[in-house]
Computed example of a mutant assay.
Amino acid sequence: MNKHNILFIGLDTHKEFVEVAYIEDQRGAQAVHFGRISSAKTAIVKLAKQFQSKYPQATLHFVYEAGPCGYWIYRLLTSLGHCCYVVAPSLIPKKPGDKIKTDKRDALKLAKLLKTEDLTPIYVPEPEDEAVRDLSRARETAMKDLKDAKYQLKALLLRNNINYAGTANWSAKHLRWLTELVLPHPAQQIALQEYLHTINERIARLKRLDNELAHQVQAWRYYPVVKAVQAMRGVRLLVATGLIAELGDIRRFDHPRKLMAYVGLVPREHSTGDKRRIGAITKCGNGRARRLLIEGAHSYRYPANISTDLQLRQEGLPKTVVDKAWQAQLRLCRRYQRLMHKGKHYNVVVTAIAREMIAYIWAIAKQVVLIDVNPKHRLARVPA
């Protein structure tokens, strides 16, 4: 194919319709508004056939913004043999003086920017990976709903000046104490019972999702990576599954600094001339993966140690993975104490530890390859 045998097609996707524009790969070519089509799969297939019949010698390159509609258009077009790119809305160049935004303009802009190579495609997960990610996010939502229900119940007790004398909230003893409470008004008693009922339902829901996630991840193609990164301190099954589900194959990054920047754990910088200004972290990329790393980084405030639980997680792993995890624990525990002695804020220290954690996780993932053995998976060393 020569340079002029490419047709760039911009899609502005919505729930009910898709706005379409295209531009030929020729010098001086102008973007053309094709029109609006339905967002049904049959309409997308018909659109691709129309462009193929009109430009039989051209390769079709589609592009659209990532959004709530997911990746089904990408998977449909690639299954038909066409090139398709999904771009993040935050990475699309925008002129400061352009104050008019319409669906037609968005489609034209996407087509022109794809032609000039000013768009950066994002990583699109496989359907299996997205399914595990949805299950992991459902578990996180269940945890948030349970916390919200507990806060609402505690607020009711606080308004009535009822305090628990024990030390462990939400233990079996605490739950029994809650069931024995009698509030002064019958309406309040009904509210208390409904809150308790909601909490019990959400606890059961969380347990179901935990069991299902632990079961489904064992048949996942990234289970060897999930199992390997659990050799790290502060990275148990739920954290490891959520992290890998959000990031996908983290070995696609050729350097750990790129992965640090991808999860938004690198500092902002605004430097010019002789002045170099470093600010807070960028918080770009996947916020859920960043939060999971921050959660795991808190465990490094204690001295380096191989606990019984960590030893069980490391059983059956290659020696190189276990050695790398121990090296990470020694370094991160020392770094945590050193930064705290320097007087750094606790949140700054934890963020610094999380930034280095993702580098060690990247190093461990590089030592793991995925081998399909009838649909099962196992660990293996990367050949030197």
Rank of each mutant, 00 (worst) to 15 (best):
M1R: 02
M1S: 11
H4W: 02
I9V: 13
I23R: 00
V32T: 14
V32C: 10
F34M: 04
F34H: 09
R36Y: 13
R36N: 13
I37D: 15
I37L: 15
A40F: 14
K41G: 14
K49Q: 14
Q57A: 05
G70N: 03
Y74K: 09
S79Y: 00
L80Y: 09
V86A: 12
P93R: 00
K94S: 15
K95M: 08
K95W: 03
D98W: 03
I100R: 01
T102N: 02
D103T: 10
K109V: 14
K112A: 15
K115I: 12
T116P: 04
D118K: 05
L119E: 09
I122K: 02
V124A: 10
P125V: 02
V132E: 00
R137M: 07
L146E: 01
A155L: 07
L156G: 05
N161L: 12
S171Q: 09
S171G: 13
K173Q: 05
K173Y: 00
L175W: 08
L175T: 05
R176H: 07
L181D: 07
H185S: 04
L196E: 00
I203D: 01
K207Y: 00
R208G: 08
L209C: 07
N211P: 07
Q218I: 13
R221K: 13
M232R: 06
A245Q: 03
G248E: 01
Y262F: 13
Y262Q: 09
V263T: 07
L265A: 06
H270N: 15
G273A: 09
D274A: 06
D274M: 03
R277Q: 14
I281P: 14
C284P: 04
E295V: 02
G296N: 10
H298I: 06
H298Q: 11
H298T: 08
H298C: 14
A304K: 12
N305C: 04
T308M: 09
T320F: 04
L330R: 11
Q337F: 01
H341K: 13
K342W: 04
V348P: 02
A354R: 12
R355E: 00
A363W: 05
I371K: 14
K376C: 02
V382A: 11
